[in-house]
């Protein structure tokens, strides 16, 4: 966990969406560090800013979004101070992205093979000999458990949803990036294909040494794949922690707890899962204080008033929660949290 070099550092990154009447902050002052050996999960519900954050890593925030402040460092080089040409070269060759709904990220009228050739043509610095690049792509296809050369002549429409996702993953690796970013890689797949994508990503991690950063709303997938977890809520980072802290340490953020409790677990009989009361606040109607406070069973007066800071080591283990941080800073941290001061009723 967190060993190896820091391959990706995000420092105080904010992304704004400039609308005609207002300016909304989709990602608010987010920092985290991904090390070479990590499989890093960015977790949150729809609208929490996780996909926007992932796009910002490649300087690909869609209009009308703009990176308002902060830095993204790829192996120490600041993406924001690169020229347009340098950014173009870094994409796919250093940091590659598999977008959500890989189904629609292929050109439907061009074969998979010629789409790969276009990429190889645009990046001669990686594969001077295009034929070798195509052979490497075949090798990648086999690694994602698809029949290599036979896939190249196919069109997108000839592939099932699960196959498309794996072809997209192989495609993203063809320029040997050191970081692979995936937006919701298992969403919209059935469980058999989810399992395959999870296994394939683990294989790529082991065999190619690629650092995996993925975005998801599904903590079950996180449990299967991730080593480090960063949880976002309404544009803020609320907790950064190693996988076992998130799942087994009782000192987890109440939002993380709520997410865990909402999973219908096949190993549990009956109806143990609980939905999270309330809704994610709209970015133009953020509550004062902690953004999760209106839905939080631990919320106290201070939570409704003051914004909690992310306290701890933002590289490895940090949490933004007033009751938890007070609890963690207590002498031995052994005392139980009680909802004595909770304002939402326990």
């Amino acid at each position: 966990m967190g060993s190896g070099d820091a391959v990706l550092e995000v420092r105080n990154l904010s992304v704004d969406f400039a609308l005609p009447t207002t300016r909304l902050r989709a990602v608010d002052n987010v920092s985290f560090t991904v090390y070479a050996d990590d499989v890093y999960a960015l977790v949150g519900e729809s609208g929490c800013g996780k996909s926007t954050l992932a796009a910002a890593l490649l300087d690909l925030v869609p209009e009308p979004g703009v990176i308002a402040s902060g830095d993204v460092l790829l192996r120490g080089t600041n993406v924001r101070s690169m020229t347009a040409d340098q950014v173009r070269r870094a994409r796919m060759a250093q940091i590659a992205m598999v977008f959500q709904a890989a189904m629609s990220s292929f050109n439907p009228v061009v074969t998979i093979g010629s789409q790969v050739e276009h990429v190889l043509e645009a990046h001669p610095e990686v594969w001077p000999d295009r034929r070798e690049g195509l052979e490497y792509f075949d090798h990648l296809l086999e690694m994602v458990r698809l029949p290599g050369s036979r896939m190249r002549g196919r069109f997108e429409s000839q592939l099932s949803g699960g196959m498309k996702q794996r072809v997209a993953i192989a495609f993203a690796c063809v320029l040997k990036p050191s970081i692979l970013v995936l937006d919701e890689p298992t969403t919209a797949l059935d469980v058999v294909n989810q399992r395959l994508v999870i296994d394939v990503l683990k294989d790529l991690r082991e065999k190619l040494g690629v650092t995996v950063v993925f975005v998801t709303h599904d903590l079950s997938v996180v449990a299967e794949l991730a080593t480090m977890v960063a949880v976002m809520y309404a544009g803020r980072m609320v907790q950064i922690a190693p996988i076992d802290t998130i799942f087994y340490d009782r000192r987890r953020h109440p939002y993380v707890q709520a997410l865990l409790s909402s999973i219908p677990n096949v190993l549990q009989p009956g109806r143990a899962a609980r939905s999270i009361p309330g809704q994610v606040p709209r970015l133009d109607q953020l509550p004062p204080g902690c953004r999760f406070a209106p839905r939080c069973p631990l919320a106290e007066q201070v939570c409704l008033r003051d914004d909690p800071e992310l306290i701890g080591d933002s590289h490895h283990n940090a949490v933004a929660c007033h009751p938890l941080n007070r609890h963690n800073s207590a002498a031995d941290g052994g005392q139980e949290l009680v909802p004595g001061r909770a304002v939402n009723g326990a």
Binding site: A223, I243, F247, N265, V266
Partner: peptide, 19 residues
Amino acid sequence: CSLLQSLPVPDPRRARYRR
């Protein structure tokens, strides 16, 4: 059985054991 085995379960220890 295969559907049960494929399903991701929110338990990293179990996932590691299984792998």
